[in-house]
Amino acid sequence: MTVNDAHPRLLYWAGVALGPLAWGINLQGVYALAHFSCETTRLTGTIMSAVLAVVALAGTVISARAVRRGAGAEWAEAQGGGPRTFMAWLGVGSGILFALVIANQLAASLMISPCLR
C-alpha cells in the first residue's frame, strides 16, 4: 500500500471517526463550561455545540463522497469494494446519528439552567 493508496481509504472512515470524536468533545466541553455558564450568561457552549455538530456532519459528507467516488471501484478491483463501502455507509449513518445527539444535548443545555446542581 502506497501513501496515495492510503489517503482515499481514510476518507471512508471519516464519518466513523469524526462523529464520535465531536460528540465526546462536546460532552466534556459542556460539562466543563457548566460552572462558568452559571455565573454569567455565555453562548460559548451553544457555539461549541453548533461547530461540533457541523464537524460531525462534515464527516458524514466526506464518507458519502467516498462512497460516491468509489462506487465503480467495486467492479474494478479484484477484491471488491465491499468492506470499504460498508464502512463508508456506516460512517454516513454514524455521522448523522452523532450530529443528532449533539443537537439534542444543545437543546437540553438551552432549556435547563446550568445552575441546577
Rank of each mutant, 00 (worst) to 15 (best):
M1D: 03
M1F: 13
T2M: 12
T2R: 11
N4A: 14
D5C: 05
A6C: 11
A6E: 11
A6G: 01
H7W: 10
P8M: 03
P8L: 06
L10R: 09
L10E: 05
L11R: 08
Y12R: 01
V16E: 02
V16L: 15
A17Y: 05
A17R: 00
G19V: 08
G19S: 06
P20L: 13
L21F: 15
A22F: 06
W23T: 12
W23Q: 03
I25H: 01
I25Q: 03
I25R: 01
I25M: 04
I25A: 05
N26I: 02
N26M: 11
N26W: 05
L27W: 07
G29Y: 02
G29C: 02
V30S: 04
V30T: 03
Y31G: 04
Y31L: 08
F36Y: 12
F36L: 13
F36Q: 12
F36A: 12
F36I: 06
S37E: 11
C38I: 08
C38W: 06
T40V: 05
T40E: 12
T40P: 00
T41Y: 07
T41H: 09
R42C: 02
L43G: 15
T44A: 10
G45C: 10
T46E: 07
T46V: 15
T46G: 10
M48Q: 14
S49L: 09
A50T: 14
A50V: 12
A50K: 08
A50S: 14
V51Q: 06
V54I: 15
V54M: 14
V55W: 06
L57I: 14
L57G: 09
G59F: 02
G59V: 00
G59Y: 03
T60W: 07
I62K: 02
I62R: 01
I62H: 01
I62S: 02
S63N: 04
S63F: 06
R65G: 07
R68P: 00
R68G: 10
R68E: 12
R69P: 02
R69S: 02
G70E: 03
A71Y: 04
E74Q: 08
A76G: 02
A76S: 13
Q79I: 08
Q79H: 10
G80C: 04
G80I: 04
G82D: 07
G82L: 14
P83S: 05
R84M: 12
F86K: 00
F86G: 09
M87P: 00
M87L: 14
A88Y: 03
A88E: 05
W89C: 12
L90K: 01
L90C: 13
G91T: 04
G91R: 05
G91D: 08
V92P: 05
V92L: 11
G93C: 09
S94D: 13
G95N: 07
G95Y: 09
G95S: 10
I96F: 15
L97W: 12
L97D: 03
F98V: 11
L100N: 06
L100S: 13
L100V: 15
V101N: 01
I102F: 10
I102M: 10
A103S: 13
N104E: 09
Q105H: 14
Q105W: 07
A107F: 13
S109F: 09
S109V: 10
S109W: 04
S109P: 00
S109Y: 07
L110M: 13
L110R: 12
L110A: 03
L110K: 08
M111P: 00
I112Q: 10
I112G: 00
S113K: 02
S113Y: 05
P114K: 05
C115G: 02
C115Y: 09
C115V: 09
